[in-house]
């Protein structure tokens, strides 16, 4: 693929992804806004994957240091984001009605 076709592919992907994000959120009741913000905070923890690649392909010491810090930050984003979301959502299970598993 040449550079332009890669760019256009990215634009297609970005457009569909943006639409997906928009649709998924627009159905969310106010009650779930906080866990949702926390949940999307967890999902951008995928930055960890990029930080791992950055550190893994780093050659100079400076790149390694920055990459190392980036992996630490990304990993904290992942675990912290998960635990916070989980803790917030845990409360919804104890609310009188017994939610069944699945839908």
């Amino acid at each position: 693929m040449n550079d332009m076709s890669v760019l256009w592919t990215a634009v297609y992907i970005a457009m569909l992804a943006a639409f997906t994000g928009y649709v998924v959120i627009s159905r969310i009741p106010v009650i779930l806004h906080t866990p949702l913000m926390s949940g999307s905070n967890f999902i951008h923890g995928i930055v960890l994957v990029g930080a791992m690649v950055a550190l893994g392909l780093a050659t100079t010491t400076l790149e390694q240091i920055i990459g190392f810090i980036a992996v630490i930050l990304g990993a904290a984003n992942v675990t912290g984001g998960y635990v916070v979301t989980e803790r917030i959502l845990q409360m919804f299970n104890r609310s009188g009605k017994k939610p069944g598993k699945g839908t």
């Binding site: 990215a10 992907i13 970005a14 992804a17 943006a18 639409f19 997906t20 994000g21 928009y22 998924v24 959120i25 949702l36 913000m37 999307s40 905070n41 999902i43 951008h44 995928i46 930055v47 994957v49 990029g50």
Partner: peptide
């Protein structure tokens, strides 16, 4: 994975 997840969070956020 980063592109799509990032854009979804960007739009939703």
């Amino acid at each position: 994975a980063m592109v799509v997840a990032g854009i979804i969070v960007g739009a939703a956020g």
